[in-house]
Design a protein around this nucleic acid. Structure first.
Length: 425
RNA sequence: GUGGACGUAGCUCAGGGGUAGAGCACCAGAUUGUGGCUCUGGUGGUCGUGGGUUCAAUUCCCAUCGUUCACCCCA
């Protein structure tokens, strides 16, 4: 079908049938983050381009080729946010949130934009929910953030997930690690793939992550990176691992786990799903002790994660046992045009009492009313025709068992109360 | 940015050089105020777009746009 107007490539409409999943994820996240004493923060959807260049790192794929950048009429260079951490830190610094208390625990939720080739689970506009704990350098903070993620996905009922964790070192030991890695690779550099050669100077750690088969063979025999971490980083990592192990969280240590954003220090982790196809990362995060100061704030340690709502929805949709609880539908059937006004009045009264009602005034015969009510999956049909008008009644029909009874026009609310309990809303 | 697959009714798809079909969905009937089943009938497509080959293209060729999967990378 060729249509004149379609959504831009990599974007999609979230249709009513999918919306319950979104509400479920969003409201579960909000209430669970509340239990950990987190507060929501909302930042603009676009920022000065420089924020991302500085914050994410200008050698990253995101900054090099994935940003939606434009110039506004005042000649400002702006970018649709590709991720949530840098803007949140910007807001943290700009509003001096650090001055109010030592620790700030914040979460955000909203659309992100990355110019990539779309594929399963990957969009150009996608949505993330993320949490950031700022001002706490202790390993317990890392552990709590990871535990919160695991808790949330448990709560949502997502299965088939696994946690992977690693440490990428700090400002002190990372250069040492990179140097060692370069030495190890150096002699074989020409045998590695193009990408790895490019990474060699800018971001050598990423070579560890390469999926290229020949590159992998040259990586065998590489000493475990964690042996090169400094004492502080090693201790930190061991504590984090100990804490989450103690909680009974199952995880794997993966020394190859290197994330694509430059700001990470020490802990990095991912939660992946076996139900997502190639783009299997549901959630990713880690510690970023250098970012706040890099963006002009006081030296502040921080740790956080973000997960993709679309991907969470994909997993939920695979699960057959997900059912939403809904207010049962009541269908108001005026039989004959003359009854419409009176029905409108009744429907108003019922809705104000908190029940969900569909008034169908476009049909005038009972047969098509009932067909329509059936299609809408109504639980109850209120029939009001000439007979009822004369007698001052409503005929109430239960669609499930085809029973029906006459109720006084003014006693409908009492009937509904007995039938469904109090309405809500 | 690279590679593969695919674009035919609202949806899932079949077909095939001579101006298109099925199932589902939708609408209307099967007597007068009673739904989900069944039966009957009906609406609905310039076969993604542009160009080329041909007497003729939706069917062949090219391009383009889009969808999709994978790589890269990530949520």
């Amino acid at each position: 079908m060729s249509q004149k107007y379609t959504v831009p490539r990599g974007t999609k409409d979230i249709l009513p049938s999918e919306i319950p999943f979104w509400h479920y994820i969003e409201s579960s996240s909000r209430s669970l983050f509340g239990l950990y004493n987190y507060q929501e923060i909302r930042t603009p959807i676009f920022e000065h381009t420089e924020l991302f260049e500085r914050g994410i790192g200008d050698a990253t794929d995101i900054v090099e080729k994935e940003m939606y950048t434009f110039t506004d009429k005042g000649n400002r260079r702006l970018t649709l946010r590709p991720e949530g951490t840098a803007p949140l830190v910007r807001a943290y610094v700009q509003n001096s949130i650090y001055a109010k208390s030592k620790v700030a625990k914040l979460y955000y939720c909203g659309p992100m934009f990355r110019y990539e080739r779309p594929q399963s689970g990957r969009y150009r506009q996608f949505h993330q929910i993320g949490v950031e704990c700022l001002g706490n350098a202790l390993p317990i903070a890392d552990a709590e953030v990871i535990a919160m993620g695991v808790h949330l996905f448990d709560e949502l009922g997502l299965s088939g997930l696994s946690v992977t964790i690693n440490s990428v070192g700090c400002a002190v030991c990372r250069p040492v690690i990179e140097e060692r890695l370069k030495q190890f690779i150096g002699m074989n550099l020409e045998n590695l793939c193009e990408d790895c050669n490019r990474r060699f100077d800018s971001r050598p750690l990423r070579i560890l992550d390469c999926k290229n088969v020949t590159c992998k063979t040259y990586m065998t025999g590489l000493p475990d990176i964690r042996n090169s971490l400094c004492h502080e980083c090693t201790d930190h990592f061991n504590y984090v691992v100990g804490y989450i192990d103690n909680l009974g969280i199952r995880f794997q240590i993966n020394p190859q786990l290197v994330r694509g954003l430059d700001y990470y220090t020490r802990t990095t982790f991912e939660i992946v799903s076996d139900q997502l196809g190639a783009q299997n990362a549901l959630c990713g995060g880690g510690r970023y002790d250098g970012l706040v100061s890099q963006l002009g704030g006081p030296a502040t340690p921080a740790v956080g994660f973000a997960f993709g709502i679309e991907r969470a929805v994909m997993i939920l949709q695979e699960l057959s046992d997900y059912h939403q609880k809904v207010n049962p539908l009541i269908y108001m059937a005026p039989v004959g045009f003359d009854q419409v006004a009176k029905c409108f009045l009744l429907v108003d009264r019922i809705r104000r009492a908190g029940y969900r009602v569909e008034l169908e005034a476009g049909k005038t015969d009972l047969k098509s009313h009932l067909k329509q009510a059936d299609k809408l999956d109504a639980r109850l049909v209120l029939i009001y025709g000439e007979t009822e008008a004369e007698q001052g009644n409503i005929l109430v029909r239960r669609m499930t068992d085809r029973t029906q009874e006459s109720v006084d026009f003014d006693a409908v609310l009492e009937f509904l109360l007995a039938e469904f309990g109090p309405g809500h809303g």
